[in-house]
Computed example of a mutant assay.
Amino acid sequence: MNKIIEEYPNLLIKQNEPLSNYTYTKTGGVADFFVMPRTVLEAQAVVTFANEEAIPLTILGNGSNLIVKDGGIRGIVLHLDLLHNIQRQDTHVIAGSGAKLIEVSRFALSESLSGLEFACGIPGSIGGALYMNAGAYGGEISDVLAAATVLTRKGELLHLKRDQLAAKYRHSTISEKDLIVLEAEFELKLTERQPIEAKMAELTEARESKQPLEYPSCGSVFKRPPGHFAGKLIQDSGLQGKQIGGAQVSLKHAGFMVNVGGATATDYLELIEFVKQTVKEKFDVELETEVKIIGEDA
């Protein structure tokens, strides 16, 4: 790492950093090197360096739909949280990868721009939202995404337009090609502020009443199986309240798993497998994880 430190002396680098500090589950082992670039140039330099030196590189967003295993992550973890600028250009909103999706939806509201109301309760970052084509309450990122600035794993800077960002349910070109999001541009509609505000208030109330926000969690654990709802299958399997270690199937919403105290990533992974196996036995439905699982076993 000496080479990159010499070239970019102000680059924020931490060694053996606990990743439990950056995940919503509050679990996960350490990163060998935890790097937080403040500019696109720094981010590009780190990605290029990692490629040239054959150092494993992992991108970490807001950690909201993520489980990092207890053995942590080798090589470099690139955390883009400091690339968080948000600005307006006409009816477009441009946001950095590290900007919180909730904050971008609130910014759009402040500018009387409609289209991101569905995202007002999604806790992830812009980069993570593009990577998995995040969605809620009938809306998806791909519905309003006009363009994105990304890096390839070699450090090449690309600007992709809407037709190059093909997306489907919880999947996108970004994830398919393993690209690194630096910035996203959303095409919205200028309208009256009041209906935007009313819709966001309605969705916020629905989220707070149904989701277990009082505990650390990784969000919705499973994708929606064709013809079913994962939460309903888990509930009908009698698994609400099922607990392994400190990880529990939420009593409030069966589609969530919460850290009720002292959970490890291993607790989460064992509970996920138990739920998948039980639902398969009872309903012959294969649950597929929506949450991303990375890192090494302890």
Rank of each mutant, 00 (worst) to 15 (best):
S97M: 06
A99V: 07
A99F: 00
A99P: 06
K100S: 15
E103N: 15
S105F: 01
A108M: 05
A108G: 09
L109V: 10
S110C: 10
S110Y: 02
E111M: 12
L116R: 07
C120D: 08
I122K: 03
G124E: 06
Y131M: 07
Y131K: 07
M132E: 02
G139M: 00
G139T: 00
I141R: 03
S142N: 12
A147I: 05
A147E: 10
A148N: 01
T149P: 06
T149V: 14
T149A: 08
K154W: 14
G155H: 00
G155C: 01
E156Y: 10
L157A: 05
L158H: 09
L158S: 00
L160M: 05
L160G: 01
K161Q: 13
K161W: 07
L165Y: 05
A166L: 15
A166F: 13
Y169G: 12
H171Y: 15
H171T: 14
H171R: 13
S172G: 10
I174S: 01
D178Q: 13
L179D: 11
K189C: 05
K189T: 13
L190K: 15
T191S: 13
E192N: 14
R193K: 14
P195K: 10
I196D: 04
E197Q: 14
L203I: 11
L203E: 07
T204N: 15
E205A: 13
